[in-house]
Design a protein around this nucleic acid. Structure first.
Length: 431
DNA sequence: TCTGGGGTCCTAGGACCC
DNA sequence: TCTGGGGTCCTAGGACCC
């Protein structure tokens, strides 16, 4: 059996843990630049706010309804997530941290010794007590069905029924549960597949479980669709993978706080992303061989596509050196740069990741950038930035004149303090 | 005026290799 | 006149996830 633990309205719940005055009020959390709604409290959902809507479209009404908007505070959410996951790792035999607010648990064999519904209920209560984060738990014979169970557990909890836990362990229950889930809510069914399914009259998960394998292969993304179907029928095609297997790619990108038209401004953003990418590589002990740079114009402007311009560069050796990455990134940027356009976003993608130092291909020509001195420089860079805050030491291209705002910097009007990760911003109980 | 960021997996064609 | 089989890598894009 598999368990799925999923936090309720995770980001909004994190905000509430330290700001209890938000309890009972509609709360939304906004994406970077305070752009879109990315999390909603139950009250906000009930006001009809949709996931992903641009905040400026709903702001006025939302505030009139007494709603509170928070800028995203990923430091806080990341730390709260670690606390929840750490606890789950103490109680479950194996845990796959699937996302910041979700984890699959491997519960094989446990049903012989435990009443799974009771066990899951205890876990749910303990997470709430230890972290303040409300979660629901679904348990079923496959991951896809555990997702279904979790969804229904949440639905029932909202309706004031059930215990926030649902175990699907027999054929009858499974059939009934699948009837209650819309086909577009099945894990793996996105917008495109949902449209196709509706076109042939398939609206529920139960109906989906009955479609032919050949049809699924043809219309639902080949083997991916076939696997999803098997899982819905109760045959596992995926297991809990504990160790975060080496990442295959890594991406650092961000929308600018304003439209940029000058190469040097965009270059500053690109250099910042390259530096951040290097930092992530070193944290994970990885090095990258392929570097993609992309820049985008607004897809909401009344202009024809393309909106995105990118190029991939193959570096002579895999590297985790910020300065090397930044210089390749600059080269890539110049290759795709078109003057006279209004850019809104830039980013770096690193592929071809390998363990730093292991089996690295040597180059024909002397590589002056892979010296022990450079490695020392990078580790000094990392410790300074860790100690004095990110951006204390930067790549030259990412530095602006003293006192001058970074042209690419983002807007974050309503960010809560880093309650749990910054001494200066600790939660203040009494002033 | 204002529209997120970071991932995975799969497919398919072309270049190139032996 | 007749023109293979098996493989990798690269590039690009689609679909989906949270």
């Amino acid at each position: 059996m598999f368990g799925l633990v999923d936090a309720n309205n995770f980001y909004a719940s994190c905000e509430r843990v330290f700001r209890p005055e938000l309890e009972g009020r509609p709360v939304v959390v906004l994406s970077n630049n305070d752009g879109c709604v990315v999390a909603r409290s139950q009250e906000a959902k009930q006001l009809g706010l949709k996931m992903g809507v641009p905040y400026f479209q709903v702001r006025e009404q939302f505030e009139r309804d007494g709603g509170v908007a928070c800028s995203s505070n990923y430091e806080l959410y990341g730390d709260m997530s670690r606390r929840v996951m750490w606890y789950l790792q103490q109680v479950a035999p194996a845990v796959e941290v699937y996302s910041v607010d979700e984890a699959f648990l491997d519960l094989h064999g446990m049903q012989r010794h435990f009443n799974l519904a009771g066990w899951a209920g205890d876990v749910r209560g303990a997470v709430r007590q230890r972290t303040g984060i409300p979660v629901c738990v679904g348990v079923a014979p496959t991951k896809t069905l555990a997702k279904v169970a979790n969804r229904l557990a949440k639905k029932d909890a909202i309706a004031g029924e059930g215990s926030g836990v649902l175990v699907l362990d027999d054929e009858m229950q499974r059939g009934e549960a699948l009837k209650r889930v819309a086909v577009e809510d099945v894990w793996g069914v996105g917008r495109r597949s949902a449209t196709k399914l509706y076109a042939v009259g398939i609206r529920t998960a139960a109906q989906l479980a009955g479609v032919g394998d050949a049809w699924a292969r043809k219309n639902l993304g080949g083997v991916v669709g076939a696997r999803m179907l098997h899982e819905l029928r109760g045959f596992p095609c995926s297991s809990v993978t504990v160790e975060d297997e080496a990442r295959k790619s890594l991406c650092c990108s961000r929308s600018f706080g304003q439209v940029l038209t000058q190469l040097e401004d965009v270059a500053g953003a690109v250099a910042t992303h390259a530096a951040r990418a290097g930092e992530k590589l070193r944290e994970q002990g990885m090095a990258a061989r392929l570097l993609t740079v992309f820049i985008e114009t607004s897809r909401f402007a009344n202009l024809p596509p393309p909106y995105s311009f990118s190029t991939q560069l193959t570096m002579p050796t895999a590297t985790d050196d910020t300065l090397v990455l930044a210089s390749w990134a600059r080269r890539g940027l110049e290759r795709i740069w078109r003057p006279g356009m209004r850019y809104v976003k830039a980013g770096i993608v690193l592929d071809g990741l390998e363990r730093a130092g292991a089996n690295q291909q040597a180059t024909l020509f002397a590589d002056t950038t892979r010296s022990p001195e450079r490695a020392k420089l990078m580790s000094a860079l990392d410790s300074l930035n860790k100690r004095y805050g990110g951006g204390a030491v930067r790549v030259g291209a990412a530095v602006t004149a003293p006192g001058k705002q970074e042209p690419w910097g983002m807007r974050r009007g309503a960010k809560s303090p880093a309650f749990t990760t910054n001494w200066g911003e600790l939660w203040r109980v009494r002033c």
